[in-house]
């Protein structure tokens, strides 16, 4: 499998300056991180507020450049200015608030904005728009105004918008934080479909533990470093360690952990309610 993301010894400093431009303080947000993600992987990044996960993500889209180290996206060095458009086309980002990302008056116009800017010929734009909207199950809303959509629907339109640029990798920074339970489910389902059917690499940043149980791999960040990495089962087996990193585990995992502590013979790292029910009955 080809490598879509290669991060080598990445270090990033936020530099605070006073009004005269003198350096007031330096905060190292990402501290010597190395990781590789293969094309088609579904990777989740967890970490408390301020752990450096969003800063890391912004490097994949050339919004931020490394202070030290290198970031290669689809083989291209993100710190070279000539690569910026190729990098951004290979790895697209979806952010937390759908209202900040939607600009079109009607849904299909919004989704067409990306490919139009890439200079894609008009007939092909329509083709891409149709395909992207169908992929996130929003085709029936194509001529609606985005204002009239629910949060989950808006966020799926945002995903269609990046999809129409045909990226190899989509980075989602807390895409469900503002959504209600059904909106969350819709978005996560759409992401999983894209990963399975279109083989698009997914990098999902989230505070919601339930959303990460289908990932191939989870990275947990703390103080700019990678504190844990492994499969969801490996990660969620370490309940106490996650708690010390200000995180949590899915509720089914928590219940299994508590039962096990009370003497019920259960394996570590149960992830879903189905698994737990199966072991208990």
């Amino acid at each position: 499998m080809s490598k879509i993301v290669e991060i080598k010894k990445l270090l990033f400093d936020y530099i605070r300056r006073d009004e005269e431009g003198n350096v007031e303080g330096i905060t190292t947000a990402v501290d010597n991180v190395s990781l590789t993600i293969s094309q088609g992987d579904f990777v989740a990044i967890l970490g408390h507020n301020g752990s450096g996960k969003s800063t890391l993500a912004k490097h994949l889209n050339a919004i931020l450049y490394p202070t030290e180290g290198t970031v290669l996206v689809d083989g291209k060095d993100t710190s070279e200015e000539d690569n910026i458009w190729e990098v951004r086309q290979a790895a697209s980002m979806v952010f937390q608030n759908p209202d900040n990302q939607i600009i079109g008056q009607i849904v299909e116009e919004d989704v067409g904005f990306g490919p139009e800017n890439l200079g894609v010929p008009t007939p092909m734009i329509w083709e891409r728009v149709e395909k992207a909207l169908k992929a996130v199950n929003m085709y029936q809303f194509r001529s609606k105004s985005p204002n009239r959509l629910s949060g989950g629907q808006k966020q799926r339109v945002s995903i269609a918008g990046v999809l129409a640029m045909q990226p190899k990798c989509i980075v989602l920074d807390e895409p469900t934080a503002m959504l209600d339970p059904s909106g969350r489910e819709e978005v996560i389902e759409a992401i999983r479909e894209l990963n399975k059917k279109e083989n698009i690499t997914i990098i999902l940043i989230t505070h919601n533990m339930e959303e990460t149980i289908y990932a191939d791999k989870i990275y947990v960040m703390d103080e700019g470093k990678i504190a844990m990495e492994g499969t969801p089962r490996e990660i969620f087996s370490e309940v106490e360690k996650l708690k010390s990193l200000r995180l949590n585990v899915p509720q089914a995992t928590m219940l299994a952990y508590e039962l096990k502590k009370a003497g019920v013979p259960l394996p570590d790292g149960i992830l879903t309610k189905e698994e737990l029910i199966c072991h208990l009955s």
Partner: peptide, 12 residues
């Protein structure tokens, strides 16, 4: 109105 949106589990 959703005082914990966007906070990590411990923060919530």
């Amino acid at each position: 109105d959703e005082p914990t949106a966007g906070l990590d589990p411990k923060g919530s």
